[in-house]
Amino acid sequence: MSHGFDLDSRLRKREDRDLRRHLEVAESVGARTRFGEDPKGEATEFGEETVVFAANNYLGLADDGRVQRAAELGARTVGTGAGASRLVTGDTRAHRALERDLAACKRSERALVFSSGYAANVGTIDALAPDAVFSDELNHASIIDGCRVGAGETVVYDHCDPEDLRAKLEARAAGAGTDESWLVVTDSVFSMDGDVAPLAALCDVCEEAGAWLMVDEAHATGVFDGGGGVVQREGLSDRVDIQLGTLSKALASQGGYVAGDEALIEYLLNAARSFVFSTGLAPPAAAAAREALRIARETDRTDRLWTTVERLREGFEAMGYEVLGETHILPVLVGDRADALALDEELREHGVVAPAIRPPTVPEGTSRIRVAPMATHTDADVERCLDAFERAGEEVGVL
């Protein structure tokens, strides 16, 4: 009798369901690069250069010289690693400078940087330990896991539906004590559909019910309103209790953050286990994120991104594709799982990397290609992408 784990069998089951994933090695991070198949323990062999429309590096700053120099300076002046939890000896001037700038950008009293956005979500929900969390049905996995760890009970409300949230809050109020703590959690930009949560309406519902609202701006930070997010674009900084996001997407670094009032941050730095028991964010990452945030706030980089987004959206729709959402994430709807996977492969044959997204990540019948433009994509890159989608779509039979 064996009490171990049959991992080969588990992998075969994923293979049978078209759910097995494979690593691909990128030669560099940027709008164009070469990829190689997973070499396991061997050296990588790269193929031809491709145009990358698959990264969350929305402002194209991951290979920007200014950000690279900031990271280098952080390493030279502070160190390559924090060396300990920030509550021990790992709290550095690089962390504090980034947190001051984040707080100013998010128009909050204070910010706290975590080692990842995942750690920020799980640590925050666990530390607050709400009696009930009301979570949008399409929230990110890190929010879902935070609810599993920290919530007394999780109530899922219909996607981007303030009225369904109101009904579920009222039902809870009818059967619960008056001293319960309630937390409503939503992404602002949803990464698979490219849509935006109705934050003003959610604020109204939360204020009526006496619940706190937590908004994850992972895919919005740096892209909207002078480097802020949707919360800032909508003028809701003083109505959202907890603003959370990542440094690893538009800000081209690593880590996550929480922004809010002084009491919230003081409590989290004492009670969030993913902060207390983790080594502080590496100083070069903090320095790089701070410089990326400065560029997002002070230059036209975001305008360049939105210009590229509109050109692509108009081009796809002119071909006959349906493009979901309203943001810088462009989900090109295909429908059938096999067609989406075939289109993904054919796009690669034409030198464009854009991933197929299929169930269970999205509902059956809504498989899609997720296109993520960067501000650094050139006119030639955009034309190459559009041409690839037209030719590949005809070859696969979806156009």
Results as ranks from 00 to 15, higher is better:
22 H>P: 01
363 P>M: 00
270 N>H: 09
273 R>M: 03
386 L>P: 00
302 T>K: 01
98 L>M: 09
205 V>P: 00
100 R>V: 06
71 A>F: 01
264 L>Y: 07
225 D>S: 14
200 A>T: 11
219 H>P: 01
305 L>F: 12
365 G>W: 12
111 A>L: 11
298 E>R: 11
367 S>I: 07
323 V>A: 08
65 G>L: 08
145 D>Q: 14
314 E>N: 08
316 F>H: 03
312 L>R: 09
43 A>M: 10
142 S>A: 14
377 H>M: 06
297 R>S: 12
16 D>E: 15
49 E>A: 13
355 P>Q: 06
14 R>S: 10
306 W>S: 09
257 Y>Q: 04
373 P>R: 05
78 V>N: 01
252 A>Y: 04
240 V>R: 01
163 E>H: 06
290 R>C: 03
269 L>F: 01
340 A>H: 10
297 R>G: 08
200 A>V: 07
180 E>G: 03
92 T>K: 01
346 E>H: 05
3 H>A: 11
331 P>F: 12
289 A>K: 08
15 E>T: 11
143 I>W: 04
57 N>R: 04
290 R>T: 03
64 D>P: 06
205 V>L: 08
304 R>Q: 14
229 G>Y: 07
190 F>S: 05
398 V>G: 01
158 D>R: 15
268 L>K: 10
84 A>R: 10
60 G>K: 02
296 A>T: 07
103 A>W: 03
152 G>R: 13
390 E>W: 03
193 D>F: 10
373 P>C: 07
365 G>R: 00
113 V>P: 02
367 S>H: 02
13 K>M: 08
210 G>Y: 06
104 A>T: 04
26 A>S: 14
399 L>S: 02
397 G>N: 05
129 A>R: 15
385 C>V: 11
259 A>N: 05
204 D>M: 07
323 V>I: 03
307 T>G: 12
